[in-house]
């Protein structure tokens, strides 16, 4: 659905996006993560043909955006961080005129989409009377009108209250399950990405620093156990001698040998008369993983972890 090859952008002397390779397959919900200014919106801008790349290629739905933007974007819908419309026109009129930039849209299709996003009854009101949540729904409606196969969501939950964020999350899941859409979700709400995406890429200062599945992230701490005992150093020395643990981290974590479970650790420590206060299996969270990535001083030459 999306294939970026060495796609890069430079504004003046500043690299907004270093050469980026990325691919998103059909039916995926792919997360694009990064801090403000990391290059997410620039990458999306280039995918939509709004920003001219300095180098590389962006292929959307099998078409090169730079060469055949019309075909590339024919089955694409997009939402941007702050949903803006012609406030002085009705929601219906906004949808009508925006959809006409893709193809003529029959009123039945407009009604269908309005109903899908839950705006029925308010479609004839002027957009200036809409709440932020309603505007977001209208933005979703305009993105769905061309019957898209790919939906690009750039910070769709920006400015929404917790209830709105929850609603948006449910909507994104519905979009995939009911309509079978491929979704590219750019966000810095890690919790949201963790709950929705199957695969993510992380950008830091225009450089891709990670590209992989959430399962890979969770597995990155496979075998880690947080251990709180009376004497951590003595406990580690004994457990290592017993070939139960292979490594330690931060003076609080041990890494189990493959095949060893926590009960073996507890038994051994109790047998040795050591006081055990806490023993918990650790699973890497996206937040923890992301913060670790951001702390690292990545340079353009360092390849992304796949």
């Amino acid at each position: 659905m999306i294939a970026l090859q060495q796609l890069s952008k430079k504004f003046g002397d500043r690299w907004a996006l270093r050469p980026l390779d990325l691919s998103v397959s059909h039916g995926e919900i792919f997360g694009l993560l990064g801090h403000n200014g990391a290059g997410k919106s620039t990458a999306i801008g280039m995918m939509l043909g709004q920003v001219w790349p300095t180098g590389g290629e962006a292929h959307i739905c099998g078409h090169d955006v730079a060469i055949d933007r019309r075909l590339a974007l024919h089955k694409v819908g997009a939402i941007f961080e702050t949903p803006v419309f012609y406030d002085y026109l009705s929601g219906w009129r906004n949808l009508e005129l925006l959809s006409q930039y893709t193809a003529p849209t029959p009123p039945a299709r407009l009604r269908e989409v309005i109903e899908w996003v839950g705006l029925t009854g308010r479609e004839k009101s002027k957009v200036k009377t809409y709440s932020h949540g309603m505007r977001t729904r209208l933005a979703l409606a305009q993105a769905l009108l061309p019957n898209p196969e790919l939906l690009i969501l750039d910070e769709p939950s920006d400015g929404l209250d917790p209830e709105g964020i929850h609603e948006m999350r449910q909507t994104i899941l519905r979009l995939r399950h009911e309509l079978g859409l491929t979704i590219l979700l750019s966000s810095h709400l890690l919790n949201e990405v963790e709950q929705l995406c199957t695969r993510i890429a992380v950008l830091n200062k225009g450089v891709k620093v990670f590209d992989g599945t959430l399962e890979q992230i969770r597995q990155s701490r496979h075998g880690w156990v947080r251990l709180r005992v009376g004497d951590f150093a003595a406990a580690v020395a004994d457990l290592t001698a017993q070939q139960l643990v292979v490594d330690t981290h931060d003076g609080s974590h041990v890494v189990l040998l493959p095949g060893v479970d926590t009960d073996a650790l507890v038994r051994r420590l109790v047998e040795q008369g050591m006081r055990v206060f806490e023993i918990v299996r650790e699973e890497q969270t996206l937040e923890g993983f992301y913060l670790e990535l951001m702390k690292k001083k990545e340079t353009p030459g360092v390849p992304a972890r796949d």
Binding site: L48, Q50, R69, L73, F80, F85, Y86, Y101, I152
Partner: peptide, 18 residues
């Protein structure tokens, strides 16, 4: 300035035509 241009240009309309 309003940002509606970005929304239009996410659609397959050419800039010259617009």
């Amino acid at each position: 300035e309003d940002g509606t241009l970005r929304m239009i240009l996410s659609r397959p309309v050419t800039r010259v035509r617009l």
